[in-house]
Design a protein around this nucleic acid. Structure first.
Lengths: 221, 221
DNA sequence: CGAACGATTGACGTTTCTCAAGGCTGGTGG
DNA sequence: CCACCAGCCTTGAGAAACGTCAATCGTTCG
């Protein structure tokens, strides 16, 4: 594992915590995880904070009988793992994923010295909170089609694809993100397809073109 | 409305943001809301941060067709309303509720001057995030009985009643917190009652004694 | 080419919701 | 003080949504 850690570029613009350039540079490492590989486990001590360079990550919690709830998908540019001292989710690479890492403790040092860094930490946590709060409404009160539509709208924004959504995650991942089963996700997609809102491209069905964004949004309140 | 604002006690131990006593005291106001009264509305500018002195508050989001998701219940001692510039939920008093208020802007000033205050803000936001993240799993992956059991466990901790839980909120509130209907909540309580885990006290049924905490926890993973 | 994996689809089962009726409680006014 | 009313809760029956199980299909990869 360690042999795959390479020295990253401290000046990498991706890893912008608003760090004052007069301070000593933070050591940024780089690492590649393969498809399905675990990045950290729930309840492990949080040693690093991560930023996705390429690829996609899922974080989730498990119940003892195997039920899974995905907390978030992290895509290129997203920062994750900064929640608390202990990781509250397990994180896995969905596909081959390159990440940048910095030690949490180094970041904490900086935030004590520079209020701007502290402010940035707070605003990232707040953005996180906002996203999760919106998902409460989604999980608690929306139908399967509304959930899937909202998911597609979110991914459409975040993947910023011009024409075709190339979803990195499987139907099961989507289901566990939305509190559904994979079959229900598949049926909801079929419904949106029949409604003329979506077009399936490539044949692994992970490539989806949104034909009618207006129509899709109408499923999402 | 304004006539009910009284000058509060800046030294009130309840409103401890870890504020350095060398700084000028923050003005703390006090206010009483009646049962059902709105405290602030979703998307309104966030002028104040609140702490419940007595009573109980619900915060929620609505869909256009009336579906409601309660984000949180705030009980005596809880601080709420500090999320962002704009309120992301509507807040209402469930019963007659006394709150303390401070201006958000004053708090922001303090957090710039004192890193300890900033840290406390961050840790409150993080605690908030933790709670909401746990509810994702609850809403997405648990059965009605598990949801209700988890709710009772949470209230048992937070209300810290020696013997009897005196729930301030209605069945509908509980339902909208858990993503269920009030009938399903009622049936889940009946089931826990029949299982010998609960005993109903007073007859408005808002007073519940947990007979078997172990048994209740076994419904909650 | 065959095996493995993921997605779709159908038939059926279970959970939860909806609609409706009835009961208990507390407050109000006669 | 009692009767009535309004609000909330419970309970039941039937409907709808979603989950489960199983078969099939298409792709990918060895």
């Amino acid at each position: 594992m360690l042999d795959r850690i390479t020295q990253g570029d401290p000046q990498n613009p991706l890893f912008h915590f608003g760090i004052d350039c007069r301070m000593p540079p933070i050591t940024v490492k780089e690492f590649t995880y393969e498809k399905g590989e675990s990045i950290y486990r729930q309840n492990a001590a949080a040693e690093y904070v991560y930023q996705v360079k390429t690829g996609a990550v899922r974080t989730y919690k498990l119940l003892s009988d195997g039920r899974r709830q995905i907390g978030a998908f992290h895509l290129a540019g997203d920062i994750f793992g900064l929640e608390t001292e202990q990781h509250r989710f397990t994180a896995e690479a969905i596909i081959e994923t390159r990440v940048l890492l910095v030690r949490r403790s180094r970041l904490a040092d900086y935030s004590l010295q520079d209020p701007a860094v502290a402010g940035r930490l707070l605003s990232m946590t707040t953005a996180n909170l906002r996203h999760v709060e919106d998902r409460l409404l989604l999980l608690g009160r929306k139908s399967s089609v509304e959930k899937v539509a909202a998911f597609l709208v979110e991914m459409d924004k975040r993947l910023a694809a011009h024409k075709v959504l190339a979803l990195p995650m499987s139907r099961r991942d989507i289901a566990d993100y939305l509190g559904l089963t994979l079959e229900t996700v598949s049926r909801a997609l079929a419904k949106l397809h029949r409604a003329g809102v979506l077009k399936f491209i490539g044949n692994t069905q992970r490539e989806i073109a949104i034909v009618d964004r207006q129509g899709l949004a109408s499923f999402d309140f």
